[in-house]
Amino acid sequence: MESVSVIPQQRQMALALAELGPRLRTLRRAANLTLQQVALLTGIGISTLSRLEAGKRRPSLDLLVPLAAAFGTPLEDLLGVAQHAGEPPVVHSPQRRSGIAAQRLSHHVGGIQVYRLILPPHQSPAPRRHDGYGWLCVLVGEVELVLSGRNLALGPGDAAEFDTHMPHWFGAAGETPAEVLFLAGGPGERVRLRVRTTGESD
C-alpha cells in the first residue's frame, strides 16, 4: 500500500500563516493596488495591512474576509490551502444538502461555527426559520438572499447578517455556482464586526 505523508493540522496552519504576508503583497501588486487603495476597499488600517504583509500581525477572520473579497480570491487560496481544481471542498463533518457543498472551517465544539459554502445555480427558494443568528459574505459569484419575503442581490465582497428567526434563504443568483463564507450562531450568539476607518490606529 502506498504510504501517504500527512502534515499535522497545526503545523500546516503555521506554514500557511508564515506564507500569508508575501502572498498578500503579491496579490496586491498583481492587482496594481497601493496599501492606501486596499485600505479604502477593506476598511482595514494601512498600518495593519503593512504589518500583515511583513508577517508581524497575526490575521483574524474579520481581516481575511474583506482581503479575500478585495483581491477576488477564495479564502482558502488566500491562506494557501491546497485544493485540486474541480474537486468538491473537503468537509470535516460530511454534509451535502440540495447540491450545496460545505467545508467546515471551525474546529471547536459549540459557539459560532464557520463554513465555506459552494451554492449551485438554479435552486428554488425554500425559506426556513430556526433559532440563532447568521452572517454571510460573498466570495465569488452572485447571491440572492431572501429575508421575510424581501429579495436582496449580493455580489463579491457584500455581506449580510440576519436573525434566523426570520424566514430566510440564499442561493446562487446567476448561471454559475457562488461561493460564500457563512457563520452560524446559536441563540444569543451574534457576530459583531467593527470596520476600521483609514488611518485609525490599532
Rank of each mutant, 00 (worst) to 15 (best):
I118S: 00
R129A: 15
P120M: 06
A126M: 10
H130L: 13
G141W: 00
R128H: 14
G149V: 10
P125F: 02
V146L: 14
V140W: 00
E144M: 12
R150K: 15
G141Y: 08
R150D: 08
V140R: 14
G134W: 04
V143I: 14
Y133W: 15
L152Q: 00
W135I: 06
S124F: 03
L117D: 09
G132R: 10
Q123G: 02
A126V: 07
R129P: 01
Y115D: 03
R150T: 15
V146S: 05
L152S: 02
P127L: 13
N151H: 12
Q123I: 04
L152R: 04
P127C: 05
L136H: 03
L154N: 04
D131L: 15
A126R: 13
Y115V: 00
V143N: 11
I118E: 01
N151Q: 13
S124D: 06
G132S: 08
E144C: 01
L136D: 08
A126C: 10
R128K: 11
R129K: 14
W135C: 00
D131H: 13
L145S: 01
L136K: 05
R150L: 05
L117C: 00
G155R: 09
C137H: 08
E144N: 04
S124L: 14
E144G: 02
E142N: 10
G134R: 09
P120L: 01
S148R: 11
R116K: 14
P121E: 01
P125S: 12
E144S: 06
Y133R: 14
V146P: 07
H122Q: 14
Q123R: 11
R128M: 10
P120H: 10
V143Y: 02
N151M: 11
V140K: 06
V146W: 04
Y133C: 06
W135T: 13
S148K: 08
G141N: 01
R116N: 06
L154P: 11
A126K: 11
S148D: 13
P120E: 03
Q123T: 08
V138Y: 08
E144P: 03
P120K: 09
V114F: 04
Q123A: 12
G134H: 05
L136S: 04
P127D: 06
E142K: 06
W135Q: 12
R116P: 07
A126P: 05
L119K: 07
G155Q: 04
L152K: 10
L136V: 13
Y133D: 12
L117R: 01
G149E: 01
Q123K: 02
L154H: 01
V143C: 04
E144Y: 06
R128Q: 05
G149I: 15
H122K: 11
W135A: 13
H122T: 03
V114R: 06
S124Q: 15
G134C: 04
G149Y: 05
